[in-house]
Nucleic acid binder design. Structure first.
Lengths: 67, 67
DNA sequence: CCCATATGGAAAGCTTGGTTGACATTCCGC
DNA sequence: GCGGAATGTCAACCAAGCTTTCCATATGGG
């Protein structure tokens, strides 16, 4: 599972802390997701998509998919 | 988080067991997701969407969203 | 040189997702 | 009425998401 979180955050010039507060999670969670240490839960993925006004598919991509 | 899994499964006349095998999870997991006892992980949500040829947003809806 | 801000990451602990195995119920065909 | 298939649920367990606390490094301004 790879994601464009870091790019989207950079486009808005938000710190990991800023993003964490908007998503109502800890800064470490944002960091862990950005650095690929783990995947967000589905509810959190929806919050992320909502925040950026994108679909989950536009932010996260499943490497196992045969696109 | 509510989902249309049961409907999609019924449209194809698959048992929970059939669906579980296609998703490579246990039947109890399919049942728990259908009955809303918990939400799938993001990777599993992607597998479900791929299997039905839909987007995650077309299958799962976040009740907290202001649509 | 200090200090504040931003980032990466580890440890321990709680919560949630997922498994296996078991049991009960409903429904349908024989 | 009986047997088998489908579903709901529970208990016990392991794995993954997430939190808090802590430490390290980098960088930019004064």
């Amino acid at each position: 599972m790879i994601n464009r979180l870091r790019v989207l955050r950079a486009e808005r010039a938000w710190s990991q802390q800023d993003l964490a507060e908007r998503l109502d999670v800890s800064r470490q969670s944002v960091n862990a997701i950005e650095t690929g240490r783990y995947d967000p839960s589905l509810p959190l993925a929806f919050r992320i998509a909502d925040l950026f006004g994108l679909t989950i598919e536009e932010i996260f991509t499943n490497p196992n998919r045969k696109d």
